[in-house]
Design a protein around this nucleic acid. Structure first.
Lengths: 163, 163
DNA sequence: AATAATTGTTAGCCAAGGCTAAACTGTTTG
DNA sequence: CAAACAGTTTAGCCTTGGCTAACAATTATT
């Protein structure tokens, strides 16, 4: 392997270890960053479905596959397949041709997702981002925001709410 | 279809249209949100590769498949396959068994990605997020932040830099 | 009650992005 | 210079998450 970080008298060597400019991070750390993103990726869609199902139940009283397909902009077949997965993962219960319910665990996940989503959304709005853009960005960002950052965002919201 | 937004005397009807609480957005808008995320998804990985290749070239003088695999935490076979894709997309040029180069377009993409990445990272740090966390979050968030939000983040950084 | 319309499921296809194992190339070194 | 080693590629497999088309069940309409 040629990436051992000690052998090269390069930019990295001549700047403080706070990475002020933008040297490459050490390999281990870098790898972990990408890994975190890949992992988030795997759960992202699941969380989106569960969150949406939760929202539909809360706002419409029930979650039906057609509504999900409609809102996700995806075919019913795709939704049907996904629901089978959610079932296997123990996140929803469903009888064929009936509407869906979240399991305990599913509810927990929906709750967490929704909270995260809301914090990110409110944060963006508090920052001054236009509503429509904020919604779009929040949808994409929510799965990549750590608890630490979330806490800070919440603090920011609180500070800017007392206007 | 059962999702027509007018027929239900529901929560949405009884609150201001600024969606203050958290009613479901209108179907069309909601669909567009998910679509945007799905699209981002497709380009995300590509951008990460291109950005990393650019960084490797800048900091080490060259980008070799082994380094990429190493930093991404992925097998060399995966990288090799990906490079073929990048080639087809006209983002890199490569001769077998030699190191990689970015095309004009690839350089442009790397540049844009890097800029975005940096803004998000600096923004998070300016917000008060711990360095390590900021790096991880930035890696995930960068592909989901609109230009509008990016501009606002940049403004925020500028305001908080003059300490 | 019979039929039409809507909704849900299944089967089978595709591309992307992982992997391992095996083959091949280039470089280093004994 | 030949062998060993490091780096690269290829082949072939797997899972996910899309799709369409065909079929099945439920619900609505006449």
């Amino acid at each position: 392997m040629s990436d051992n970080d000690q052998s090269l008298p390069n930019a990295a060597a001549s700047m403080s270890n706070s990475n002020c400019g933008d040297a490459l991070p050490p390999v281990g750390q870098h790898t972990r960053q990408y890994e975190t993103v890949r992992n988030a990726h795997e759960t992202e869609l699941i969380e989106d479905y569960v969150e949406l199902i939760g929202d539909l139940i809360r706002h419409r009283g029930e979650a039906r596959a057609a509504d999900i397909a409609n809102r996700m902009g995806v075919s019913q077949a795709t939704v049907s397949k996904m629901i089978r997965r959610l079932n296997e993962l123990g996140l929803v219960t469903s009888k064929p041709y009936r509407s869906l319910f979240l399991t305990e665990e599913g509810q927990k996940m929906a709750e967490i997702s929704r909270t995260r989503h809301d914090i990110v959304l409110h944060f963006l709005r508090a920052l001054g981002v236009n509503d429509n853009t904020a919604r779009i960005d929040a949808e994409g960002m929510e799965h990549h925001v750590s608890d630490e950052t979330l806490t800070i965002m919440q603090r920011f919201i609180d500070q800017h709410a007392k206007r």
